[in-house]
Design a binder for these strands. Sequence first.
DNA 1: AGGTTAGTGACAGTCGCTGACAGTTGACAA
DNA 2: TTGTCAACTGTCAGCGACTGTCACTAACCT
Lengths: 223, 223
Amino acid sequence: MDTAPRPGLRERKKRRTRDALVRTALELFVANGYERTTVDEIAGAVDVSQRTFFRYFASKEEAAFAVQELVEAHFLEAVRRRPPHEPPLTALRRAVLASWDTIGEAIETVVPMELHMRAFRLIESTPALLAAHLGRQEGLEEELARTVAEREGLDVDADPRPRVTVALFGGVMRLAARSWGAGHDFSATAMRGLTASYLDQMELALAEDWRTRGEHAPGHSRK
Amino acid sequence: MDTAPRPGLRERKKRRTRDALVRTALELFVANGYERTTVDEIAGAVDVSQRTFFRYFASKEEAAFAVQELVEAHFLEAVRRRPPHEPPLTALRRAVLASWDTIGEAIETVVPMELHMRAFRLIESTPALLAAHLGRQEGLEEELARTVAEREGLDVDADPRPRVTVALFGGVMRLAARSWGAGHDFSATAMRGLTASYLDQMELALAEDWRTRGEHAPGHSRK
DNA sequence: AGGTTAGTGACAGTCGCTGACAGTTGACAA
DNA sequence: TTGTCAACTGTCAGCGACTGTCACTAACCT
């Protein structure tokens, strides 16, 4: 590996401009809402032309997801790092939990954690952004399915299990993220807890009859 | 019930205009692609002003999903009609399968089946539309979760099982729809078969170790 | 028939986004 | 150091989605 000697002035400048755009965009989005923030405002605040903004991001939306992109790549990497003998769901589970512990630093190189979390809430509560988010997640799931299939030595298109597994896992993860965003505890610990607890619910939810026995999740009574 | 004596001329005219817009929009989308079709073209073809188009649909996107809306409502209705003693997943499964058998007529009152199916493929293959589709599905899943919770006498926000169940179910349904759209057999029978086979995969995918035994789904050879 | 009101068209304007062209400034060699 | 080249950028012009406004027509109601 030799991919980090000195980026060169041009590269550094570009990186600075990009980070400033992301940061400013998120700040304005969070402060005034996504749709009420114009690209001209963002570009103006960073003192570049609107045209330049669109040279860095294909769309206003793309700027909103710049940090998410980091998180997703980080998680995917964590999955690929799991030892191949682990069963698929176990590998996925450990990868998420592990990646929550280390993603913080990567994020902080671009924007403060606080801002990222507020941006996440905004994504969840803005229909247009939520739709885009789900679309991105579908793309991630496709990559995950391929990764899982490769681990197990299967053909993704012939054996449905990799995609099914990833779809189930992804659905549950969305629920965890959603309740994280809806709550008030934005710590990584809280996210870990929610993740684990939702994953534990998977088998319970598939049970035939929910009414034969009252107890299911510890601490959850029937209200 | 008394909701169908005579709609009145005004209503009938409105309905006709709307149907014409939907039909024309889908035809143009399918023929030329979604983004390459302008609202002006659609409005022009139906001989109304662009402004009028936007009085019927909040966005170009909304016109693309007018028929999907019907399908979703139909399915939701089918779920609500299931006898309350059925376990949640059983009720969901039977509701989908049942609704595929009867949705055809409802669709044909607006557009020919063939057109609807082509439009569905277009949605799956156009990123912007796919994202919107996933966003809509999330909304549907929320309603489903509430319905399931009510059947079981639970509080959606206190007990995670309704949302988890619906998320798992929804994820699998998306896979079935996706492979339906990717294939060549557009019959309702094909959709039924895919739906059933993917649902059957749910438990198998959750199995600990996929490598202890080679066989998994009956009729699914490793091709 | 005559007043009310829903539905429409015409027009102007905002915002996201793109192509074309020209000016500026790092990178790199002479 | 200097000159050339390529990368980045700003300016401008334009398209398409979408919205507010206002006047006009036609269905509705009495």
